[in-house]
Amino acid sequence: MEVTVNVNGTDYTRDVEPRMLLVHFIREELGMRGTHWGCDTSNCGTCVVWVDEEPVKSCTMLAVMADGHRVKTVEGLEGPDGLDPIQQGFIECHGLQCGFCTPGMMMTGRWLVDKNPDISDEEIREGISGQICRCTGYKNIVEAIRWAAEHPKGSEVNA
C-alpha cells in the first residue's frame, strides 16, 4: 500500500505492507533511528512520537493509519537556533543515562510543557507514567522537563 506521511515537515511516500507498524516505518523505511522500540505490549513508551501534535506510541499504530498525517520525531526537535529546551533540559539535569528511553521521554515532555507551562512535578510524573526508564529513577527526568518549562523556546538559554 502506498502511504504518504509528513515526518518533521517533509513528505515521505513509501509502498508498505498494511501491517507495518509506524515505529518500523519510521526506523526501517525512513532510516530515522532516534525512535526506539522496547516492548511488544505498548507499555514502555520508547517509541513515542507526535502524530498531528499529540504524543502517540508509534508501536500501537500502523503506518497506513498515519497516511496523510503529520509525524514529529526526536530528529525534528532541534531547530535552526540549536537544541530545543527539552533537549537542553535533559543534558542540564542529567535526565538520561543509556539514552534509550530518552527520545520518547523528550517527545512527551515537550508536549506536556507546551500544554501547560506551569506544570507541577506531580503532573509531570503522571504525564510520563506510561513510559519506562530503567536507568534514572525518574527524578532527573522530572527535573529535565521542569527545566524546559522554565526555559521557553527562544529564550536564549538553549543556544
Partner: peptide, 16 residues
C-alpha cells in the same frame, strides 16, 4: 556528560 549530545538528538547508535 559528553555522550548526551548524540543521545538527545536521537543519534545514539544501538545494535538495532
Amino acid at each position: 556528560r559528553k555522550e548526551d549530545q548524540r543521545f538527545v538528538r536521537g543519534q545514539g547508535n544501538y545494535v538495532d
